[in-house]
């Protein structure tokens, strides 16, 4: 078929491809810039950072910032706290979200649209205002200064979005597959396990990526709900480094850079299963 293209057409086609590649490349560079910025500044001394925040480090590289993060700031311990919270947040979202979204996407039941809308509307209330009443009720049942409190708050915060995402994706699971599974002897849970989970895995991966990272990076909820020093999450601890008048940004950048690693790792692992791309897509 390609022979039918004239030289002229081929030139423009190649030209178009080069332009697209360049645009994508420029975007990619711009997306990498913030990481680069954090890296170069995490290696500067405070004095150098104030004088030269955008250039490459000219003085001795301050690897010490990273070492101190581990040895004194105990960032790995903080990672542990954040990880526990993010892990259970995501686990609950996947379990509860899959259950609910399957119903919304594939089961016809009375009042479906009404319930769906009610769940969605909880998304529209900004957290700043509901935090105080929520905090007071959490304090009364012992959920303050408790990882579980943060996890439950995240479930409530992220479940509506999870359900929306999963429902949107589960809708494209062919009904024939579900019927076939039923005939093969799968019950409700069986269909979930053998059809919905594998077919909906891209949506589940997205859920894991989004909310692992959202809960990992979130500042407000753990800042308000967790008190004890040994329970602080990594973002809360890092945010306490920079004040209105004082602080050591290079040191904070070192910490922020380190705390981006787990988030990047989760993304790297789960993004692969989002879509295999065209050539590998024909697994069905």
């Amino acid at each position: 078929m390609k022979t039918s293209l004239s030289k002229h057409q081929r030139f423009w086609r190649t030209f178009g491809r080069v332009v697209i590649f360049l645009v994508l490349l420029i975007l990619a560079i711009s997306f990498l810039y913030p990481l680069y910025y954090m890296l170069i500044n995490s290696l500067k001394s405070l004095g150098e950072y104030y004088v030269n925040p955008f250039g490459l480090p000219r003085e001795q590289l301050q690897w010490q910032n990273f070492i101190t993060m581990i040895s004194q700031f105990k960032i790995l311990k903080l990672f542990g706290n954040s990880f526990i919270i993010s892990f259970f947040t995501v686990l609950g979202l996947v379990v509860f979200g899959t259950l609910a979204s399957y119903s919304f996407a594939k089961v016809n039941f009375k009042g479906k649209n009404g319930v769906y809308l009610v769940i969605l509307t909880t998304l529209f209330v900004p957290a700043q205002v509901t935090m105080i009443p929520m905090y007071i009720s959490f304090a009364k049942v012992g959920l303050v200064d408790n990882f579980l409190g943060v996890v439950i708050a995240y479930w409530a915060m992220f479940l509506p979005e999870t359900i929306m995402l999963m429902t949107a994706n589960f809708k494209s699971i062919p009904n024939e597959l579900l019927e076939a599974a039923t005939i093969d002897g799968c019950d409700y849970i069986g269909r979930l396990r053998h059809v919905v989970m594998p077919m909906g895995w891209p949506a589940i991966s997205l859920t894991i990526i989004f909310f692992f990272i959202s809960s990992w990076n979130d500042l407000f909820t753990p800042m308000v709900l967790l008190k004890s020093m040994d329970k602080r999450t990594v973002m809360v601890a890092l945010s306490s480094l920079i004040g209105r008048y004082t602080g050591d940004p290079p040191f904070q950048y070192a910490g922020l850079l380190m705390s981006a690693i787990p988030a990047l790792a989760v993304y790297a692992v789960f993004q692969k299963s989002i879509v295999k791309g065209m050539s590998m897509g024909a697994i069905k």
Binding site: V95, F96, A100, I119, P160
Partner: peptide, 13 residues
């Protein structure tokens, strides 16, 4: 299957 979600939202939100 919606119950956990509804419970959490009801209790927290």
């Amino acid at each position: 299957s919606l119950l956990p979600v509804l419970l959490i939202l009801l209790l927290v939100k």
